[in-house]
């Protein structure tokens, strides 16, 4: 019951941040504007700002934040390690490589082909994770720790390759790449919403259907096999889901790290270990973190916009170090 209270508070907080994001920006909306939107008597330009600019961005931010959080929750459950995060294990680097290939080979006006960009980024991220994944088997058994180690190494290696093509880039192309790596939410139109959000939601439903197995993964493998669970298969399915969620999210909102690490962790501290509860709590926390980061990045140094990815890292990094130091003492 107390968990339900806490979750309600988190949701209320989330709604507040969402409303704040909807009304602030280069074109500030007033409270009357919001009321007129609800009652359907809003002016043309208020409608445009609200429905064409603010709405798609907030939807993307909410859903991607949730997707990254769930991806992190899965990775942590599988590796039994509270420090696992999709950004750390190479999804961002792989997606970045896809982005570089896109910028390199699609010359001319990039804005024309902009919708191909998330697809390239998605393929890059997913392929990277699947390659890392296929290398993580030892004598037929999937080893999650090896998966994480190879992921970290691949992230380092691929980052070198990203810069192979950049010597040919002009300033505009370079700026685009830097925007991706800084985690600037660039897919903020309705088209991006349609190509990413439905898939993320469908995968989330699939993940939820395996929530019981996820909750059991913190037991010993032998014990799980004793219960009749096909541990390898469960881990493989969940990893593929995690990879798809994070590369989808990253493909529309840029290289964002730490959400997958922090959101499940805060949820665990607040709501305990029940996996079903954790699923909902992480979803809310992830969405809350990314929307807050986007809002802060928009407001703090106005009119300059700090990319959400950087804001998340600036908050998440110290949290991560704190986690480490705390774990070191145990």
């Amino acid at each position: 019951m107390r968990n339900a209270y806490k979750l309600t508070i988190a949701v209320i907080l989330l709604i507040t941040v969402v409303i704040a994001s909807l009304v602030t920006g280069t074109f500030n909306l007033t409270f009357e504007d919001l009321v007129s939107l609800v009652t359907g008597r809003a002016g043309e330009n208020v409608m445009t700002v609200f429905f064409d600019f603010r709405m798609p961005r907030i939807i993307i931010t909410l859903v991607c934040g949730a997707a990254l959080a769930i991806s992190g929750l899965i990775l942590q459950a599988i590796s039994r390690n509270a420090l696992a995060d999709p950004g750390i294990i190479g999804v961002n680097a792989g997606s970045g490589f896809g982005v570089v290939l896109f910028i390199t080979f699609i010359s001319g006006s990039m804005s024309q082909h902009l919708y191909a960009l998330p697809i390239m980024s998605f393929i890059g991220g997913l392929l990277t994770v699947l390659i890392i994944f296929s290398l993580s088997f030892m004598s037929g058994e999937f080893k999650s720790n090896i998966f994480i180690l190879i992921g970290i190494a691949t992230a380092m290696g691929v980052t070198g390759f990203v810069y192979v093509f950049t010597s040919m880039f002009d300033t505009e192309q370079m700026e685009m790449l830097n925007r991706y790596f800084a985690g600037n939410i660039w897919g903020d139109t309705w088209a991006f919403v349609w190509i990413s959000v439905p898939y993320i939601l469908i995968i989330m439903v699939f993940v939820y259907s395996r929530i019981r197995e996820m909750g059991m993964l913190n037991l010993d493998d032998e014990m799980l096999i004793g219960f009749g669970m096909n541990v390898n298969r469960e881990k493989i399915i969940l990893i593929v889901f995690a990879a798809m969620l994070s590369s989808l999210a990253v493909s529309v909102c840029g290289a964002i790290s730490f959400i997958g690490l922090i959101a499940p962790h805060i949820s665990r501290m607040m709501f305990g270990q029940n996996m079903k509860m954790l699923f909902f709590a992480s979803t809310v926390m992830g969405a809350l973190l990314l929307t807050t980061a986007d809002l802060l990045g928009k407001l703090v140094l106005e009119p300059m916009i700090i990319p959400a990815g950087i804001v998340v890292s600036l908050i998440g990094g110290p949290y991560f170090v704190w986690l480490l130091l705390k774990a070191g003492r145990v």
Binding site: N81, L83, A84, D85, G87, I88, N145, I148, L149, I152, A155, S257, F258, L261, S313, G316, G317, P318, F320, V321, L324, A327
Partner: peptide, 13 residues
């Protein structure tokens, strides 16, 4: 593993 993850996380930050 803990050490390597620590390094990767600190680098990202």
């Amino acid at each position: 593993l803990h050490l390597i993850l620590a390094g990767a996380g600190i680098s990202l930050f």
